[in-house]
Design a binder for these strands. Sequence first.
DNA 1: ATCAAAATTGTAATCATTACAAATCTGAAA
DNA 2: TTTCAGATTTGTAATGATTACAATTTTGAT
Lengths: 144, 144
Amino acid sequence: MERIKQHLLDHDVKPSLQRMAVMKYLMDNKTHPTADMIFNELFPSIPTLSKTTVYNTLKLLTDKGAILMIGIDEKNARFDGDTSPHAHFRCKGCGCIYDIPIDVNNTIFVDGIGELTIDEVHVYYKGSCKECAEAHAENDQAKS
Amino acid sequence: MERIKQHLLDHDVKPSLQRMAVMKYLMDNKTHPTADMIFNELFPSIPTLSKTTVYNTLKLLTDKGAILMIGIDEKNARFDGDTSPHAHFRCKGCGCIYDIPIDVNNTIFVDGIGELTIDEVHVYYKGSCKECAEAHAENDQAKS
DNA sequence: ATCAAAATTGTAATCATTACAAATCTGAAA
DNA sequence: TTTCAGATTTGTAATGATTACAATTTTGAT
């Protein structure tokens, strides 16, 4: 519990009741839930909780790097409390999502879960192109 | 032009005017456009075109493997006429999306575009978990 | 106890995508 | 050529996740 609070503080997030609940849920459940799932799970124990708060919190935590937003499901965003480098596998049949340890070379990975038939591998990079990186640097300069 | 038609036929898609136009647009433009962009670009030359047709066509082409749906933009789906293995880079500043050649080892790649600052690398696998793969096999068996 | 800033909440938009049913087109058979 | 069924296209009306916004509540310092 104290670990949760520290994790938020480490990422510059003031630990409120709601934020800690969302963070704790994502750390305890490796299921990569949607915002809606998180709301429904937490609502019983926090009856005043609003769905907007869940969305706000998830956005804040994502921006601060405390959690990861996963775009593997074209319908809704999914969230992962584990920010360490790993890949994800989504079954096209049942929609389940597994964590996959990343190896340096692009071989197919299997863990205790069983065999996984890989149809598609998607690799996405996100960052800044040269122009934007330079603009950023200027802005930072201007601010200081 | 004949190449477009053949590409559709190769993927079991009956080549209609609209389908060829969408396919041609994606082959000519490596910009990873959204459905909306494609509609707006094609509408002048095909005044009867409907946005629903664009969506239908993109879904069909994606299902048949003639194009790729890219989930790098959390707002809307993007499409790529190049189905050969390559990664994508999206600038968080301007939103531009570049094709990135994939190498076996996970080093950072640069091409003629210039330097790219990589903040995040997302690797997604899609396929079937063991249970679904087996269910699939049974279904196929039953059908034959 | 007081007050401003931050956080939370509920409701009402937004907007990409899909459902659906009508209209149109296509190509084979008569 | 005409006809007709099936495939394709079209327009309009939903759907549903996410966000905007303004009001309310909470927090923490004075």
